[in-house]
Structures are given as C-alpha cells and as structure tokens.
Simulated assay, not measured.
Amino acid sequence: MSPMPNVPFIDGHNDFLLRLLRTPEQREELWLGAGEEGHLDLPRMQKAGFAGGFFAIYIPSPPEADAPDYEAMMDAPPYDLPLPGLMTASETQHIALAMAGHLMWMERAAAGALKICRTTADLHACMADGTIAAIMHMEGAEAIGADLDALYAFHVMGLRSLGPVWSRPTIFGHGVPFRFPGDPDTGPGLTDAGKQLVKACNELRIMIDLSHLNEKGFDDVARLSDAPLVATHSNAHAVTPSTRNLTDRQLAMIRESGGMVGLNYATLFLREDGRKATDCGWDPVMRHLDHLVDKLGEDHVGFGSDFDGAELPDVIGDVTGVQALIGQMRERQYGEELIEKIARKNWVALLERTWGV
C-alpha cells in the first residue's frame, strides 16, 4: 500500500525568529538549509506539509547571575519558577523590530515560497497555490508602549496576532508562572493599559492570544473583546495540571466565543507528571487532543506546536513529525474530515472570523 499523502497543516506557534535573533550571521543556513538542529527550516517545512504558521516575536529575558538550573527543576516536579521582571518598551522595541525584520527577510529569501499574510485573501491565496502562509505574531507586548503608537506601526509591518504577555508581567497584564502542579488563577487581571490594548486590537482586527495570560486576565479579555477567544499553544489543565494549561471552564468560554485552541507539543504541558522528559510516546499527546476535541468541539481545535521554543516528544521530533501525529489520529479513528479541520481548516475559519473576510 502506498503511503498516505501529506495533509497540509497550519501551526499556531513557533519561535524560529528567536533562533535567527540569536545567530543572525547564520540565518541563511538556518532558514534555507535542511539542518538537523532546531525544529524548523524552509526545506523541512516544505517536506512536512507546513502550509502556514504564526511566527512569534518574543523578547528573551536578560541573563541572571547565579540563576538556578531551571531546566533541571522542570524535570523534577513539583516546581515553581520565579518570573523575570517587567521589561520596558525602550528596552525591547529594537529587538522586536529586528525580529520583524528577520521575518521580512525570510519572505524575500524564500523567493516566493513564503508570504507574510495580512488579510484573509492573502491566506486563501497561499492555501490555494502552496505558498507557506506566515502570520506575524507578538508573544508578549513589551515592545508596545502605553500610548499604543507602536501597535499601529507593527500592524503596518504585518502584525496580525498578539499575546499581551509571555508569562512575565507587562504594562498590560500578568502571565502565569511556570509552576507544576498549579492552576492559572495566579494574580490580577488586565491593567487599564491592557484594556485599551484589547480595544485597539479589536479595532485593527489583530487576533488576541490568551496563551500565557493568567485566569483573571483571560476573563477580562473575554468580557471586553468582540473577537473569538484564542489560545494559540495551550493544553488541557484537566489532563496536566500546569499553570499554562486551560481549565474546562476556560475551554467552554473559548467554544462559546467561536474561538480556538492550538495543541501545544511541549512535553512540560503534555505529560501528566509535568516533566520535560521527551520519551513519553503518543499517549499524552492524544489524551490532550481528545480532551480538547471533547470540550471544544471539532471546529475549535488545531495545532500549536511551540516549535523551536520547547522540548517535544521524541515521536514528533521536529516539523517532519507532524504527519506521524496525523497518522496517530487516523489510528485512533479520527476521520479524514476531522483531521483536515484540525490540521488546517479550523485555523483558516478562525482567522476569517477574526480578521474579516
């Protein structure tokens, strides 16, 4: 029997731009060469059926003197990692601009194989002709000042998705710490500036990402926003009680809003024991996927890998392992129509609802 053809998929989150930020002198090799390091590059994405994805602008925290071994702590639960302090727009804006520039360079260097999508028309054109659809995302709004002027500037550059926080606090709100076991009710809700940010994102049709935001902030966005609620790379708290995972109450709110959750492949948020170890097989992945489909419904679940930002199960490995995940879905009686929804169609429909058609 001949192998099944690749199912094209859209992915809700990756940190490839951070790799380019850290080694800009190697960016051609990292992007255009089929390497064995990291989770993404253009040749592997094309081989894997990567039809599109959210490329995150993320500001790394400054190095800490005498910091404990956080990696070891996360592989030996329970753990409760302290969050870095707030970073200002003046400290971070130049880094965010550099990362936006890297994505624009990737578009040029790909010579027609990737396009930054600013509209649903762009997205549909990419799906039709096989061009990789890149969505500029900001994971943590440190680079946006309280006056929001930079939000409008980044929107012109192509920003179409934004998370108010990456765990550490911003002037807009508070994220969840990396804690296991724990729940997402970890602090206060959005600040006044955060409420204005939600309003401005709605006006600009910038999707608001709830991954990393704490529970009170989540509830504030749900109350204030007129857009679907979306968590681009989050899992089910009922399966793995990490602060980063969503409770069934939150999942119900996302479903009611017409929103969506992207399944995160990070072992920290998949394994029931909360460890980072990558030798966990398919069972944790499928337990989360089954739970998300059960609670959200078939039209509100997708992929949200966290490629190049997390440790992944060995059975996935990198972007080329997504088709193996799809194979597991088939083995567990996910029909082809549902597979195509989760792989690609749900993200397209969600962006239509958010951006407008």
Score class of each variant (00 low, 15 high):
296 L>N: 08
341 K>D: 07
276 K>N: 14
320 T>Y: 06
178 F>R: 13
139 E>V: 01
145 G>S: 15
117 C>Q: 03
166 W>S: 11
157 M>A: 13
138 M>S: 06
53 G>N: 06
263 L>V: 08
182 G>N: 07
319 V>C: 10
354 T>F: 01
340 E>I: 01
343 A>Y: 02
297 G>V: 02
304 G>A: 07
338 L>G: 05
297 G>Y: 12
198 V>D: 00
259 G>Q: 05
135 I>L: 15
45 M>T: 08
167 S>P: 05
76 A>W: 03
250 Q>F: 12
100 A>V: 14
99 M>N: 04
160 R>N: 04
243 T>L: 10
230 V>A: 02
324 A>L: 11
207 M>W: 02
276 K>P: 01
51 A>M: 11
180 F>A: 04
160 R>V: 06
349 A>N: 15
163 G>F: 03
98 A>P: 00
239 V>M: 09
187 G>R: 01
164 P>F: 11
231 A>F: 11
156 V>H: 14
187 G>K: 02
169 P>R: 04
222 A>I: 07
298 E>F: 03
36 E>Y: 12
263 L>Q: 09
209 D>I: 07
13 H>V: 08
20 L>E: 01
49 G>S: 05
61 S>M: 05
108 R>G: 03
357 V>I: 12
80 D>P: 00
305 S>D: 13
62 P>N: 06
229 L>N: 09
35 G>T: 13
133 A>V: 06
110 A>G: 14
226 D>P: 02
299 D>S: 13
150 A>P: 01
55 F>M: 01
348 V>E: 14
139 E>P: 03
298 E>S: 13
4 M>W: 12
307 F>V: 01
7 V>F: 06
302 G>V: 07
51 A>T: 10
45 M>D: 12
